[in-house]
């Protein structure tokens, strides 16, 4: 299990290959990549600023991932979540799950992402041409 909370952008292929190269038995990798959209709530978005309570986010994401690994017998997993200023079109988050078969990797990836959205202590401040708004995830 690898969890990274970082400011800088990342290379998806490189990050996934770093893990995949360790496991010849992995036949399926499911990924979710979250990006900053240019439109939200009918407003033109220019950028977001993500704040994190890192000290809490890491054990919480470890707990979510441990549950997913056990439930679907996943071989390994990767979460990269960025914080700080992120522009439109840039990546916010990557979740990848590594399994023998697709069914378990799909389910584990979905489970981790859903729980991350619901509980992980990150907060988005969305900037428009004029003003900003703190966002709240729908449950």
């Amino acid at each position: 299990m690898m969890i990274k909370i970082q400011k800088k952008d990342f290379n998806i292929e490189k990050e996934i290959n770093n893990i995949k190269s360790k496991y010849p038995e992995v036949g399926a990798i499911s990924t979710f990549i979250g990006y900053v959209r240019n439109i939200n709530n009918q407003k033109k978005v220019t950028s977001i600023n993500l704040e994190v309570y890192k000290k809490m986010a890491i054990p919480l994401l470890e707990d979510i991932t441990t549950k997913a690994i056990k439930k679907w017998n996943v071989i390994d997993s990767l979460i990269i979540h960025r914080y700080g200023k992120i522009l439109v079109n840039q990546k916010i988050v990557l979740v990848a799950t590594f399994s023998m078969h697709r069914d378990t990797s799909f389910k584990a990836c979905n489970y981790i992402m859903n729980h991350l959205k619901k509980d992980a202590p990150f907060w988005k401040k969305e900037f428009y041409n004029e003003g900003y708004k703190w966002l709240k995830n729908s449950k």
Binding site: G34, M56, V93, L116, W123, K124
Partner: peptide, 10 residues
């Protein structure tokens, strides 16, 4: 003790 609004990550 941490006080924070509902989360909005991902």
């Amino acid at each position: 003790i941490a006080l924070f609004p509902p989360v909005s990550g991902g």
